[in-house]
Amino acid sequence: MTAVDQEYLKVIVFQLADKEYAIPVANVQGIEKLMHITRVPKTREFIKGVINLRGVVTPIIDLRERFGIPVSNHEETTRIIIITLEEMEVGFIVDSANDVIDIPADAIEAQPEVVGSNEEEFISGVSKLENRLLILLHLDKVLNP
C-alpha cells in the first residue's frame, strides 16, 4: 500500500433507515435507479430477485431485510448499489445513496461493542466524521450467509 492509500479510504455512503453506511468505492460498480426485479423462487427472503443490468443478470439483495430492519416502501430516492466482490456481482437495495467521501484511515475504529442491532455481524468498523457516524460494511459477511 502506498502512503496515500493509508491515509484515506474512498467510500460510497448510503442510508438505511436512520443510519449511514459506507462501502469502499473499489467494490462499487455503479448506482442504479430502481427497476423491474424478477422474483427468483425458492431463495432466501432478502434476495429480491434479479435485474437486467445492461445485459447481465444481476441478483438483488434488500439490505433492510438482510439487516433485519423493518421494510419500507420503495421511494423516489431508493437506489440499487451494484457491488463486485471476487467475481460476484450483486445489487443492494438502499434507501438512498448520498455521497462519495474520503475517510482518513485513522478515523476508522473497530465497532463499539454496543451497537446493538442485527446488523452487528456485518460491520467491519465505524468512522466518525464531524457530526456523522458511518458504518463500514463487511461485504464478505453480507454476501455469505
Binding site: T38, P41, T43, G49, V50, P59, V90
Partner: peptide
C-alpha cells in the same frame, strides 16, 4: 441464455435466465 451469476447457485428447477424484449428478466 444467461447464467444467474455466482451468487445464486443451485436454484431449484431454474436453469438460468434470459432478457426479454421489454428488458425484463425471465427465468
Amino acid at each position: 441464455l444467461k447464467s444467474l451469476g455466482d451468487y445464486l447457485l443451485n436454484i431449484f428447477a431454474i436453469s438460468g435466465a434470459t432478457i426479454l424484449g421489454n428488458g425484463k428478466v425471465a427465468l
